[in-house]
């Protein structure tokens, strides 16, 4: 049987892959931002799984503290990105960078 920490780690790695693909493949900035959040969640999940390093002492609390800090940082970054995106959409009626125009959304 696979230990649950490994399972969580693998799920995190899969999320990183999905998020990275979405981030690079899409042109619409809102989609890219959402993909980025999936990617970030994958990193946090992997980090959390790494806390369960030795079953006989239980979970390490440090990654948990760092993940909470990381989530706050990601939240701030996403908020700024959304604010800029709204401003871009108001000013230009577009939601993609000029060089990505014409790519699938």
């Amino acid at each position: 049987m696979i230990p649950s920490a490994t399972l969580f780690g693998l799920a995190g790695a899969a999320l990183v892959g999905i998020g990275l693909y979405g981030f690079l493949a899409h042109a619409h900035l809102l989609r890219r931002l959402l993909s980025f959040n999936v990617l970030g969640s994958g990193v946090f999940l992997m980090f959390g799984a790494a806390a369960w390093r030795s079953p006989w002492i239980g979970a390490d609390a440090v990654p948990h503290a760092l993940i909470i800090t990381g989530i706050v940082v990601k939240l701030a970054g996403s908020a700024l990105a959304i604010a800029l995106l709204v401003q871009l959409a108001r000013a230009t009626r577009r939601a993609a960078l000029p060089e990505d125009e014409g790519r699938p959304p």
Binding site: A81, L88, T92
Partner: peptide, 18 residues
């Protein structure tokens, strides 16, 4: 808040997030 600089900021954001 000009359209050009907001676009530049968003492009910076895409690179910086990655």
């Amino acid at each position: 808040g000009k359209a050009g600089s907001v676009t530049a900021a968003l492009r910076y954001m895409v690179f910086a997030l990655l």
